[in-house]
Design a binder for these strands. Structure first.
Lengths: 247, 247
DNA sequence: CGCTTCCTTGATTTATGTCAACGTGCGTGG
DNA sequence: CCACGCACGTTGACATAAATCAAGGAAGCG
């Protein structure tokens, strides 16, 4: 089962029909190595992709040649969902790890809306989730200091990864280099290193060449105000589902 | 004609039918004074609103009681569009100016998708625009210094306002206090004042009690890398429109 | 083996925050 | 009408989080 199926199962929105439409939509699967550029900034968008496995980033390049990571893309996330609605990509997308992707022409999305209102709503819901993640990122950049930002980011990513179906064991180590964290949180890699060192001396996390490991999520959460308690049931409200069935 | 109609006219997506559905959707209009809280953070969302006139902000409150403005809402923007899809609001919404709003139960949105695929796509497109604005905000916070952030923000807001139908004259003065700019850009109001003073001494803008006036947009644009040249035609690509008609 | 990428640590600089004081306009209530 | 409080903007002196500059170590890789 793909991560997207996993997320939509939790949503409890898919019926037989919508599941079939989805399966057909995701028929064409490709594999790409880490570092692959899926879009560059400003390029025309021809295909929409769903990340089945692996991580990616959406980013924009700054005037001085640095990158600003806008958002992380995890299994089940869409890439270029709005390709049918906008002429050009507003950001670049690059694979952080090796990945498996489902690809389809972005115009297919319009068909989906007509073929299955349920699946359309589900995709719309995914778009809404994306907005929330962007808001979280704004909150981090605007309201937290360097150390808090790091804690907040890794907690969010861990949670998102588990919602996409990763096991608790798998999701303790995130495939992030310190440099990448810096590009996301607008902290120099030098300062990221300092903050991570301090956090690891306090036993809250651990960094290694293969990524960053969360050792004490609740301590991390309390230092940055991240809400670990409210469970993230990825599920549509009943009112939405019943409405989709046709009143 | 409402600002939303104006934007959707430009999109060239509405047909007779979709226009009728939209008119019915926006039937119930209310007026609210500046300072009104439309949502508080974490409250359940009952109704979706479309801002017809006036400005608002989406914000989150930080641990130390400050506000982080996530996004500005202008005429034609939606408030609580995802109310049907999420149990609770992820942010508060407050009116910056007196405003006129269309209100409808958020579950109506689902009907819209079934009644007019065109209007559904249009609303989805608005959601996509919102994502772009959030990305711009991340870019400002992550990649620009205080003065550049201010320039970049006012340019974006001016452009958005004109896309919503404001005249060039009207859109030169934005209804923003320096304090609000600070809350959006994560700069203290003291430092906002210093930056604005310097910009106004250089003749780039002017601040008054009623808002901020852009005097030299192209100079502002060149100092923060804002792209004024690419025209913002708010319009769907042909491929999307033809697909909506049913292949 | 040399090259690159990533991480680490120290010394110094800088953009921005903090604290404090003051001016101005505006609405409210005596 | 004035007096008062209040929100907003301005400016100065000082403090600080994070950037910058610099150097070096460790691991992967052709």
């Amino acid at each position: 089962m793909t991560a997207l199926h996993h997320r939509l199962e939790n949503l409890r929105i898919l019926d037989r029909d919508a599941g079939d439409v989805l399966t057909r939509l995701l028929a064409r699967v490709v594999e790409r190595p880490a570092g692959t550029l899926l879009y560059t900034e400003g390029c025309p968008v021809e295909s929409t992709r769903i990340l089945l496995q692996g991580w990616a980033i959406r980013y924009r390049t700054t005037a001085d040649g640095e990158r600003q990571v806008l958002n992380f893309l995890l299994p089940g996330d869409s890439i270029g969902l709005y390709g049918a609605l906008f002429e050009r990509s507003s950001a670049g997308v690059e694979l952080v790890t090796d990945a498996r992707l489902a690809e389809f022409p972005c115009t297919r999305l319009m068909d989906v809306f007509r073929e299955s209102a349920r699946l359309g709503a589900a995709l719309c819901w995914i778009g809404g989730m994306d907005e929330r993640f962007l808001e979280q990122q704004i909150f981090r950049l605007g309201a937290l200091n360097a150390t808090e930002r790091i804690a907040h980011l890794v907690l969010e990513l861990q949670r998102r990864w588990m919602n996409a179906g990763a096991s608790a064991a798998e999701a303790t180590t995130l495939p992030l280099s310190q440099r990448l964290i810096g590009e996301a949180l607008s902290i120099t890699h030098v300062h990221v290193s300092r903050c991570c060192r301090r956090l690891s001396r306090r036993g809250l996390l651990e960094t290694a060449s293969d990524g960053i490991t969360l050792l004490d999520p609740s301590a991390l959460a309390s230092m940055c105000g991240f809400d670990l308690k409210t469970p993230t049931i990825e599920r549509l409200p009943k009112k939405a589902v019943s409405r989709l069935l046709g009143d």
